[in-house]
């Protein structure tokens, strides 16, 4: 069995993203246990601050690596010419191919991610709302990641099963 370089690159970035996804799931579970309210958020203790940092870091990494590395790898492995595509074009193409339910929703998740890198401190009201929105967004991100993993397994099986050009004669 020979695997194309595109397939290998895809497998590598899948594993990287899954690592972020696993750590993000753990952070979400811990945050659920802590059940932080708006008041806690104005004076966080050390453990809570570390937990929120961990959450923000993994959310940001998963979002970035999926958008900038996993999605291009998926398209390349499917033989798509991604060079002339903008990021928004790539999301739209993945929606057409059935990998993303909604390219628009991905843009919204990306904007939530960008707010973690915001230059100015938000007001306390907005900060708490941002955290709640980020928790929702993180759950959606994990759902999309799981969908990509399922689709990737399906696509790989099709390549091995039906397309002789990717499998040398035994």
């Amino acid at each position: 069995m020979s695997i194309s370089p595109e397939q290998l690159a895809l497998q590598h970035i899948q594993a990287v993203c899954q690592g972020h996804a696993d750590a993000l799931s753990e952070a979400l579970q811990d945050m659920q246990l802590r059940a932080l309210g708006a008041d806690d958020y104005t004076h966080l203790n050390k453990d809570d601050r570390r937990l929120l940092d961990q959450f923000a870091y993994r959310y940001t990494r998963l979002q970035d690596d999926m958008g900038a590395r996993l999605m291009p790898s998926v398209l390349k492995a499917m033989g798509e010419d991604i060079a002339p595509m903008s990021a928004i074009d790539r999301f739209a193409r993945l929606e057409q191919l059935g990998w993303l339910d909604s390219a628009d929703n991905w843009l919204a998740l990306r904007q939530v991610r960008n707010q973690f890198a915001h230059d100015y401190p938000d007001s306390p009201t907005e900060r708490f709302e941002r955290l709640q929105a980020a928790v929702q967004a993180a759950r959606q991100l994990l759902t999309i990641m799981a969908q990509f993993q399922r689709k990737a397994i399906g696509a790989e099986n099709r390549v091995r099963g039906n397309d002789g050009s990717h499998s040398p004669p035994t």
Binding site: L107, A108, Q111, N114, Q115, D122, S123, T125, E129
Partner: peptide, 13 residues
């Protein structure tokens, strides 16, 4: 404010 800000940023993008 946060949800509105996200909607505004998506429109601008």
């Amino acid at each position: 404010p946060f949800a509105r800000k996200i909607r505004m940023l998506i429109l601008l993008e």
